[in-house]
Design a protein around this nucleic acid. Structure first.
Length: 167
DNA sequence: GTCACCTTAGAAG
DNA sequence: CTTCTAAGGTGAC
């Protein structure tokens, strides 16, 4: 049962992101497509439910705040029902990392009571459907190095730098 | 079943 | 210091 989703573009100075909304809220956020070739969207803003338009406004504002290295005042409701229990625990822990702060995969693992599931935390970060707003980029390797990032290490570096984190 | 993945502490060389 | 090993959760094949 795949929840019906609405896709809306978000134009930023870093490219065109795409937000996916389910009945519950923001369910996915995509980084700008490489090269920018794809624009699958054709939603008429007029016929969208008002709640979706409201969520989208919050998403756009929040995304731009984070891209600018600041803390969003407001977030749209996040629909993380697509993940497993373990993944949701990880994502929830990620959301507690404030702007400019970083944690290691090991610290997240301990925070959710799974001290040995370090690599699994890495996996959950990679599976994060809402990058940037769920700050998977604030997780570094234990020795202070960047670690990986499926969205592209450039983004990880860029986002952290804008938040004032030095590597 | 097997493999690859955003890891890491510890033991061995 | 460098190299190797073992340990978790999950999705792709």
């Amino acid at each position: 049962m795949k929840a019906p989703s609405v896709k809306l573009p978000i134009f930023t100075s870093d490219g065109q992101f795409v937000a996916h909304y389910s009945e519950k809220g923001l369910a996915e956020l995509d980084f700008p497509a490489n090269g920018r070739a794809e624009l699958p969207l054709g939603q008429n803003a007029q016929q969208l439910p008002s709640k979706v338009r409201r969520w989208h406004r919050a998403t756009v504002a929040a995304l731009k705040q984070v891209l600018a290295g600041r803390s969003p005042k407001k977030f749209p409701p996040l629909d993380l029902s697509g993940g497993t229990t373990f993944q949701r625990q990880v994502w929830n822990a990620l959301r507690k990392i404030a702007r400019g702060q970083t944690k290691s995969y090991g610290e997240i693992a301990r925070a959710i009571g799974r001290p040995r599931a370090v690599r699994a935390v890495g996996g959950a970060c990679g599976a994060n459907p809402i990058p940037v707003l769920v700050p998977c980029h604030r997780v570094l390797a234990a020795n202070g190095k960047l670690g990986g990032f499926s969205g592209g290490l450039d983004w990880k570096r860029k986002l952290l730098t804008r938040e004032g984190v030095s590597l």
